[in-house]
């Protein structure tokens, strides 16, 4: 049973593409056949984050307009045999894709893959409509900021109208020290306002930016906070029950010794 999951947020810059790339990678690490689908036409990024930019020949618009076969446009990941990317077009715009074409492509992809991760563009216009058209599930990404929680709320309201299961929530870019001082919205508060199930929380980690810039999603790394968080989310998608990560840092002598030896706290 293949599943199409759309990653959306409403607001831009909260980490939809990063989350898509890392969830895809984490699922592939667990030997699942995964296809990443970039629907942000005109502003494609997922290929860059995955480090596959130089391999693009055909794109999603070519497939939608039948200029090539779906197989020709799929790019195999450098690291996994079970991970593929269907890149967005950079020269067309969002109106060149239609929800019907998306449904058709996803149906075809489902025969080949177990998980199809759809990276949704920001906004609630045509691009969003295309991205959610063929999805079975939705993951809403937000950050602990009022503006992104507001937009997430709007998106959840719009998703209710679609033929999609109740969406799950990922809270990205959590800065523990700011949450403690009350300068950031608390996780409980966000979940209470949005009133949907929490799928995972991801710390604001420099490694994520580093990974994106090197075309290596952070989920590859064994021991950073963000990579563990993403892998936990992937495990929850597979149905495992994994407790939420604690953001409390142990500040004992042992911690300092470990840090001194370059061991990261997990």
């Amino acid at each position: 049973m293949a599943e199409a999951i759309v990653i959306t947020s409403g607001k831009g810059g909260v980490g939809k593409t990063t989350t898509s790339a890392n969830l895809g990678t984490a699922l592939a690490l667990m030997d699942k056949k995964v296809c990443l689908m970039d629907t942000d036409i005109g502003l494609r990024n997922l290929d860059v984050v995955m480090g596959l930019e130089n391999r693009i020949i055909y794109d999603i618009i070519d497939v939608a307009q039948k200029r090539c076969k779906l197989k020709q446009a799929l790019i195999k990941d450098k690291r996994f045999d079970c991970l593929y990317l269907l890149p967005a077009a950079q020269t067309s715009d969002k109106n060149d894709l239609s929800p019907e074409a998306m449904v058709e492509m996803i149906a075809e992809l489902k025969q080949q893959f177990e998980y199809i991760i759809i990276d949704c563009p920001a906004g609630i216009e045509q691009g969003y409509k295309n991205a959610v058209a063929g999805a079975d599930k939705a993951i809403v990404v937000t950050t602990p900021e009022k503006s992104s929680v507001r937009d997430a709320d709007r998106i959840i309201g719009l998703l209710e109208k679609e033929n999609i299961e109740s969406p799950n929530l990922v809270i990205n870019r959590i800065r523990n020290h700011m949450m403690k001082t009350g300068d950031m919205l608390a996780i409980d508060e966000i979940v209470q306002i949005l009133s949907i199930d929490l799928l995972g929380i991801v710390a604001d980690d420099d490694e994520v930016i580093k990974g994106s810039n090197h075309g290596e999603p952070v989920a590859f790394q064994p021991n950073t906070r963000a990579s563990i968080a993403y892998r936990n989310i992937a495990r929850r998608i597979l149905g495992e029950s994994v407790p939420l990560m604690s953001f409390e840092e142990e500040k004992g002598v042992f911690y300092k010794v470990r840090k001194f030896f370059g061991m990261r706290q997990s």
Partner: peptide, 10 residues
Amino acid sequence: VRTKTVRSGQ
């Protein structure tokens, strides 16, 4: 009587 969450934009 209505039971729902009235979200942003609704």
